[in-house]
Structure formats: structure tokens, C-alpha cells
């Protein structure tokens, strides 16, 4: 498929890659998520917006199997995972996360080993998946960093010596090193200045176009969602209040909260 063909609007007819349904999660008296459902089709970018505390990050953590809900199911249409992913044991979860799911956190300290080299951080992902050849590790780490437009002259510097934008690129390289089926982005550009933010979004957009990676992107920034996402889910108080195509939701918001959100932004 050429780039132009991929860019052209297509009717989604296949089975969804990610299906979550009936997700509820309470932290004591606090309701973080209440009967949330999400569906993502292969090659699609789903945006999740909402105010702080609306449960969007909790939902993303569940997609990365870092947390288990009180009720609900999670399926990924992958050959090795037929059942509900929340039923997997710790070992199987780690294997699945390492091989099939990539994640970029808002705070690079969560995703990177700050004292180790950048290329080592990318290689770690491959090592956990069982790669043991030094030449392959080196080449793959380099390839992933190159794909995330990281300056290769600095590939052996530790992330603590890098700027915020570059740290996000290392996280991105680490996330895509194993060609994941699903890429999760948790506020990937929050905290970066506007020009760097644009460059990182540019990289993400290009990656999405070239590799047709399925992405879920969480942000409170409507501009980021508008640039990146195909479909959007608006969350508030742990519930999904509105869901639809990005243009449709942002041009013609139905729910009062979405209307407020869109007007506050524009």
C-alpha cells in the first residue's frame, strides 16, 4: 500500500484490535472508572481527552496491563492472546507488554533508566524480549532511534543529559523497537515547549503514516488530539461522555461538557 492509499479515507470493515468493555475501578470511595468501553481498530489512532482526574490515565495504565480493574474485560486480537488479558498471570503480562505493547509516558523517569545510555534503554526492551546478539541489539537500537528522529551522535548519552524533547524520542524509540501491535501515548508532549511539541508530533504522525501503528493517545490538549487522532473519546468523572470522529466531535459537540471543553479551547 502506498502512502497516498493509506492516507485516503477507508471504510473500517475488519475486526477491532483492542476491545475493552465494562471497565470499572474504584480506589476506596473514589470512582476512577465506571463502566467504560473502548474499541480500537488496526491502524487507527484513538484520542482520549478529559480533565485531570477523569480516569483517562487509569484507563491507559489498564491498556498497558499495569493495573487490573474491579470488573471488565480486555481483549487484543493477537494470535497468542485469545482470552481476557486481565486473567493473565504476572509473567504472561510482562511478556505481552514487552513484545506487543509500547508505551510513552508523560514523565520520562517512568519509562527510562536515566543513568544508562539512550541506546541501552532501547536495547533493554529487546533484551527483555530475549535478544542476545550484540550486533543485532546495536543495529536495532540504532534503527529505532533513527526512526524516532533522535540525533544518532548522542545515542550513547544517558537520558539525564538530554533535553525533554529528546527524552521523549528515546521513550518513543524504546516503545517502537519491537514493532508493537499497540502504541500507548500518555500526554507525550505535555511539558515540552510549543516548537519541540510540534516536532515530536511530527515524528509521531510520520511513524503512524509509515508503519500504520495502532495508537491510543491520552491528552488534555485538544490541539494534539486534533492533529493526531482519527477518533476521540471524551471522559469525565470516570465515564465516557462522548465518542466519535474527531472532526464530528470537535465541530458539533453534543454533551455539555464537550461543548465547554471545545469552547474553552477555541
Amino acid at each position: 500500500m502506498t502512502v497516498m492509499e493509506r492516507l485516503a479515507p477507508q471504510l473500517v470493515t475488519g475486526a477491532p484490535l483492542l476491545t475493552m468493555s465494562g471497565i470499572s475501578r474504584r480506589f476506596g470511595a473514589v470512582v476512577a472508572l465506571e463502566d467504560v468501553a473502548a474499541t480500537v481498530w488496526p491502524g487507527e489512532v484513538l484520542g482520549i481527552v478529559g480533565e485531570s482526574g477523569s480516569g483517562k490515565s487509569t484507563l491507559l495504565r489498564m491498556m498497558n496491563l499495569e493495573d487490573t480493574p474491579d470488573t471488565g474485560t480486555y481483549h487484543l486480537a493477537l494470535p497468542e492472546t485469545p482470552g481476557n488479558l486481565f486473567d493473565l498471570d504476572r509473567f504472561a503480562r510482562r511478556q505481552l507488554c514487552a513484545r506487543r505493547i509500547g508505551i510513552v509516558y508523560q514523565n520520562p523517569h517512568l519509562g527510562l533508566l536515566m543513568g544508562h545510555s539512550s541506546s541501552g534503554n532501547v536495547a533493554e526492551r529487546l533484551l527483555i524480549a530475549g535478544e542476545r546478539s550484540f550486533a543485532t541489539l546495536r543495529a536495532k537500537a540504532k534503527g529505532a532511534l533513527e526512526a524516532s528522529e533522535f540525533p544518532l551522535t548522542r545515542m550513547d548519552d544517558p537520558p539525564r543529559q538530554l533535553s525533554g524533547g529528546m527524552q521523549q524520542r528515546v521513550q518513543l524509540a524504546k516503545a517502537i523497537a519491537l514493532e508493537p501491535a499497540l502504541l500507548l501515548l500518555d500526554e507525550p508532549t505535555t511539558g515540552l515547549d510549543v516548537s519541540v511539541q510540534a516536532l515530536v508530533l511530527d515524528t509521531l504522525k510520520r511513524l503512524q503514516r509509515d508503519r500504520a501503528i495502532t495508537m491510543v493517545i491520552v491528552s488534555h490538549d485538544l490541539g494534539v488530539i486534533r492533529t493526531m487522532a482519527d477518533r476521540v473519546m471524551v471522559m469525565r468523572h470516570g465515564r465516557v461522555v462522548e465518542e466519535g470522529l474527531v472532526d464530528q466531535v470537535f465541530q458539533d459537540p453534543q454533551h455539555p461538557y464537550t461543548q465547554e471543553l471545545v469552547h474553552a479551547k477555541l
Binding site: H116, A123, E124, L127, R132
Partner: peptide, 10 residues
């Protein structure tokens, strides 16, 4: 033990 190779890699 994957991470132990990270030290050797570096």
C-alpha cells in the same frame, strides 16, 4: 534477567 545484559551492552 534481561537487564543484566544491559550492563554488558554498555
Amino acid at each position: 534477567y534481561g537487564r543484566l545484559w544491559l550492563v554488558l551492552y554498555e
